[in-house]
Design a protein around this nucleic acid. Structure first.
Lengths: 317, 317
DNA sequence: AGTGTTAATGCCAAAATAGCATCAATCCCA
DNA sequence: TGGGATTGATGCTATTTTGGCATTAACACT
């Protein structure tokens, strides 16, 4: 390890805010970080961190070094990326971040096929429902539902994401088939809720083409779509859910759309996020494989939903 | 050693044109270079050099890597330099390039004193009469006589450089004291001549304030000023010499100015050259020490020359 | 006060490195 | 045209560097 790597290590330490976290990121012992930072200070002849036993702050010199380390890291990764443009065959490590559901249902099958085709490519698939910082965590590619905020990333729309109101036959038997939005709002719902997002109302377009929001009666919330669906399958709640969560529950008669005459707008789409315009071969190929797998313009999951073209699309006369 | 160092190593190899020379520059075995370049190619997954057994050429990928390596080296050295600004005490290695005479006479004494004062600073003094490439050879500071051409360097004028026409008493006894430029031109001269520069004429300013050039009769040439002076001291030639070559030969009566009423313009001055605007402490301090040692506006060597203020300065009436 | 977390340090095994010797290919100069 | 010298590659080994573990000391949060 030499000066530039140590500078980048310093940068990671500062970004993570602690030696331990930086070590965890790299899967190395903290002592390594401690020693390398010491050596960096010795090399440069400057104290970079003011340490208390349990934490640290940057010195003026340290702050300048971090600034340059950032440039250095960019330049270095850019250089490696340039080299990768010359690969005929994709290789190397591909780090992908995605939400649990998207990952398990739509990314994982693509990766399986992909690694059969390109055995030289290693993959790390990180399942996280909270958005991560692609750059500082070192991911090459992320998949997300929802408009991306971080403008330093390139976002590419992969698929639309329609919404459905679903309940089980048992539920309908118990509560009766609701005939209006007001009626539906009284029934028990299972909804998505996390610290970042809360989906406890139904957005729809009324007869006057106005977007309306109907608050619903949420009796069960979770931050995981699959357990919400499980709850709904148990017949004790209905749900409003993005279409990509549905497999064969509707065709098998386990779930039935409610209020199909309602006009539900698309929910935020599925996006691929990546940090650069020109991607390494492996990343580009995987991204294309995902797009192909999901399909366009009708995403794969919509094939599981009969009559979707007419569902929730009432033209307002 | 890791990727960025290897990239810089690649750059050095390309700059030097051979593995061997690059190894020599670093004082390491060639096998090290060979292995590291191989490893770099393996890391990047790209062939960087097309090799024949005895030489190589860059591949397209290699050329791009070299381009980026250059940026990388700049950024890294800039970063180290920034860190050095935080040193209170100068330390580290100071690499100085200079011509033989300047080095021995005017730089070496300064270094002796400097290292007494700052024992933490190591010095490499490279004596070369041909100009070297400061950047690619890794020098921090160079001293030269003559207008610098390389505009990527900062040049700072250290001292003027007056010219003298000198001969020994024995010479004057043999040939008589010349009374005019024409007469002088007939006498045997010892002159400086190298592949880069040739000083076989006398530039002077005539009564009409025009700059003239008188070709002289050179019977001895060398690319080293000191042996030229030795030749002159032997009484068999006169010379035109820059003032910094003279120690106590005139005050001791070993040499006498010829044609003192001639008006000789200053020859190109002594310059310090360095690659950056803001120098590390050690470089700045040494540069200041050299300036102080040589003195301003009258350089140290002019103290050895009686009456210099009147010599070769005839005001044209 | 007690518990858990943090960074530093010493120690040891494992990995990377530099130098040496050798080799084959090529260049160079006579 | 044919030795002699030089170049880059490769195998081997001693040395250096590194990473992980255990321990310690300092601190934070209950």
């Amino acid at each position: 390890m030499d000066t530039s790597s140590r500078l980048i290590m310093l940068l990671e330490v500062v970004e993570q805010g602690s030696f331990s976290k930086a070590a965890a990121m790299r899967n190395i012992d903290r002592s390594v970080i401690s020693k390398q930072i010491s050596k960096l200070e010795e090399d440069l002849g400057v104290r970079l961190l003011n340490r208390t036993t349990r934490s640290f702050s940057l010195t003026a010199a340290g702050a300048e070094m971090v600034k340059n380390a950032k440039e250095l890291r960019m330049l270095l990764s850019e250089t490696v990326r340039l080299a990768e443009n010359y690969h005929q065959e994709p290789r190397g490590l591909l780090r992908i971040a995605t939400s649990h559901t998207l990952g398990r249902r739509y990314i994982q099958p693509v990766i399986n096929q992909f690694q059969k085709q390109f055995p030289q490519v290693n993959v790390h698939l990180q399942l996280d429902d909270r958005p991560v910082d692609l750059i500082s965590e070192g991911y090459d590619l992320a998949f997300r539902i929802g408009e991306p905020r971080d403008s330093s990333l390139i976002a590419r729309k992969i698929a639309r994401n329609r919404m459905l109101l679903l309940a089980s036959p048992e539920f309908i038997e118990t509560y009766g088939m609701p005939q209006s939005m007001d009626e539906l709002a009284q029934l028990p719902a299972a909804t998505y809720s996390s610290s970042h997002k809360r989906l406890d109302s139904i957005t729809y377009i009324n007869d006057q083409s106005e977007q309306c929001e109907q608050v619903i009666n949420s009796v069960y919330t979770s931050n995981d779509g699959e357990v919400i669906l499980d709850k709904v399958l148990s017949g004790t709640a209905y749900c409003i859910t993005p279409a990509f969560l549905i497999e064969d529950e509707i065709t098998q008669g386990l779930l039935t759309p409610l209020l199909p005459q309602i006009n539900l707008p698309d929910y935020s789409a599925m996006y691929a996020l990546y940090p650069h315009r020109d991607l390494p071969v492996r990343t580009r190929l995987l991204l294309e494989a995902v797009r192909e797998y999901i399909g366009e313009p009708e995403p794969r999951w919509e094939r599981n939903i009969p009559n979707l073209a007419e569902l929730y699309r009432t033209q307002n006369s």
